[in-house]
Nucleic acid binder design. Structure first.
Length: 252
DNA sequence: GCATTAATTGGTC
DNA sequence: GACCAATTAATGC
């Protein structure tokens, strides 16, 4: 688990690139006496990964704190958001295994504009600024993958802003439920994570009370079911038909 | 069991 | 549809 070589998190960008192949290749070459500076460097850089155990409720990225490299969620569930004025929170996205966290810190900004808080006990992989920068120099596949990832993220982000502006509260709450369900949900309709009403409203850009009203309305229509914080989607089609066309295939 | 927090409901602007 | 207040449910100590 501490080792990228043996990691089987297929959703991870590092795993998806041919980094692993490069390293395996490197070890093979070592065995046969040939060598490659590039793969050697890549292997050494990957070994400088830090593993962070984060308990539920703990924040490992704090708004305004200095950028500390790039995070990959190895195992767990994390919410990413920021605090507006004052102190309205906006949850920007939820992340599951393999997701990249803190990528917006790249470039000119010297401090995080978002926070990242574990919803459940989570394990994170972290590469420092120096290490990740050198990795991008040394592993072209990783650089390319990250660039593609950024483009997709920007697309999602812009689309979300546009769609959100046109949705009413009910639609935004439902959209948030569908989003969470896509992200964490299980086969039986359980949305997969225990979120407070506030966490749902912070995601939907509304208030706790509105979330409660939408939820009880949906419960009355037997579209969802809930006990405590556990929410089950009984009729996904009906739920989706509540929001304008062309949403559910967006934002991951 | 009491205290604190979260969820719910109703009402006002 | 946001904000406020009151009530009820859930949870921690």
């Amino acid at each position: 688990m501490n080792d990228c070589k043996s990691c089987n998190n297929s959703n991870c960008l590092i795993k998806q690139t041919s980094v692993h192949d490069a390293i395996l290749d490197y070890h093979k070459k070592c065995r046969y006496g040939t060598n490659s500076c590039r793969t050697e460097a890549a292997a050494q850089l990957l070994e400088q990964k830090h593993t962070i155990n984060c308990k539920a409720g703990q924040s490992f990225i704090i708004e305004g704190a200095p950028i500390h490299g790039l995070f990959f969620l190895y195992n767990g569930k994390v919410k990413i958001g920021n605090t507006g004025t004052f102190g309205k929170e906006q949850i920007l996205r939820y992340t599951s295994n393999g997701d990249i966290i803190g990528h917006r810190g790249f470039g000119s900004s010297e401090s995080y504009k978002i926070y990242a808080t574990a919803l459940e006990d989570s394990i994170l992989c972290n590469f420092s600024n120096d290490v990740i920068m050198r990795m991008l120099e040394v592993i072209p596949n990783l650089t390319f993958s990250l660039m593609t990832f950024f483009a997709e993220e920007l697309n999602r982000s812009e689309t979300k802003v546009q769609k959100f502006a046109q949705m009413n509260v009910r639609e935004k709450v439902i959209d948030s439920l569908l989003y969470v369900s896509r992200k964490f949900g299980t086969e039986d309709g359980y949305i997969g994570v225990q979120l407070s009403r506030r966490e749902i409203s912070d995601c939907a850009g509304t208030t706790e009370e509105q979330v409660i009203r939408v939820l009880s309305s949906l419960k009355k229509d037997e579209i969802i079911q809930s006990k405590g914080r556990a929410i089950y989607i009984l009729d996904r089609n009906k739920l989706q038909s509540n929001i304008p066309e062309g949403h559910y295939f967006l934002n991951s």
